[in-house]
């Protein structure tokens, strides 16, 4: 095959991928970006325009006294979303390492079953699973009974609290962390741990110098898989958190719905996407520099 034919083949061979990416990914994002620059319609909807006021609105709004004032309320929502996303990621990581370790060290014929159990929740609709937590955390629910059994004092309710919301988020996204961490731990050669001990590395040193660097790709992949959907979450704050504190997901929903301000909703969505992209870039750079180190 000569060079030209190869090039043509490459072009047409990849064309379906480009087409799919363009139609399902790039064009929709372009539309959202376009809406965020549009003029809002009086009752929702929008007109195409080049209007940056939706982005300005994230920082400055009309106050109750008719003055344009700096208003940190949307920044607070963005900050809260990031904080909950990070907390979810951290808790998922802390919980999934031991789980993944147990699965990786289980008897060979048990492993497929255990991995299957981890993925089992995905077969049930997310909404149903979050509703189940309403029952578990609700009045006279499992959580309250267990709490009392353990000698805890009288509780009003576990529902509609930040803790309930965080519980729901950790529950929803933890399988996304367990699987890559499991894959990383599974590949860890026990001989390397032995070697570390032979070289007088204590447990801490072994963890820090051997286990963490070798499982890092799994941990970071899991962290991204959890963090990205966690900052876009809508269900858990609404159902388990009681909708008392807005997150970016609920803010976007409100703006497209009751707020009837689509450009502003789209602008917040673009900010959310920018945050995700920043996280992905940071991770890619990290992976690249780690790769260089390994090569050197």
């Amino acid at each position: 095959m000569n060079m030209k034919a190869l090039k043509t083949f490459r072009f047409w061979g990849l064309a379906p991928t480009w087409l799919l990416m363009g139609l399902t990914l790039i064009i929709p994002i372009g539309i959202v970006a376009g809406v965020s620059l549009g003029d809002r319609g009086p009752y929702g909807g929008f007109d195409w325009a080049l209007n940056f006021s939706s982005y300005r609105e994230i920082l400055f709004t009309m106050g109750w006294t008719d003055e344009l004032e700096f208003d940190p309320k949307y920044l607070a929502i963005i900050g809260r979303t990031l904080a909950y996303g990070l907390a979810t990621t951290a808790i998922c990581m802390a919980l999934s390492v031991p789980v993944a370790y147990v699965i990786a060290n289980a008897r060979e014929n048990w492993k497929p079953l255990l991995v299957y159990l981890v993925t089992l929740p995905f077969w049930v609709s997310m909404i149903v699973r979050v509703y189940a937590w309403l029952i578990i955390l609700g009045n006279e629910g499992l959580a309250e009974k267990a709490w009392k059994l353990l000698g805890g004092g009288d509780v009003d309710t576990f529902l509609f609290t930040p803790g309930a919301m965080l519980t729901g988020m950790v529950y929803s996204y933890i399988p996304l962390m367990v699987l890559p961490v499991y894959a990383a731990i599974e590949k860890l050669d026990p001989a390397l741990l032995e070697a570390s001990h032979d070289l007088y590395g204590n447990r801490w040193t072994t963890l820090r110098r051997v286990i963490l660097p070798l499982t890092w790709p799994g941990l970071s992949a899991g962290a991204i898989l959890v963090f990205v959907p966690a900052i876009g979450t809508v269900l858990e704050p609404m159902l388990l958190g009681g909708g008392k504190q807005m997150m970016m997901g609920t803010l976007i929903q409100t703006q497209f719905g009751g707020g009837r301000n689509w450009p502003f909703g789209a602008a917040v969505a673009m900010v959310l996407m920018a945050l995700v992209v920043i996280v992905l870039i940071l991770n890619a750079r990290r992976a690249a520099s780690a790769g260089k180190e390994a090569a050197a």
């Binding site: 309403l134 609700g138 009045n139 509609f160 609404m238 159902l239 009681g242 909708g243 008392k244």
Partner: peptide, 28 residues
Amino acid sequence: VYDLLMAQKPFVAAYSSDNIENRLGSGE
């Protein structure tokens, strides 16, 4: 109106339009 709703907020358990039957019927 805002002041009234803001003063009420600390006493509100949830802002939710779903599943009302259950929340009120069960005594949540």
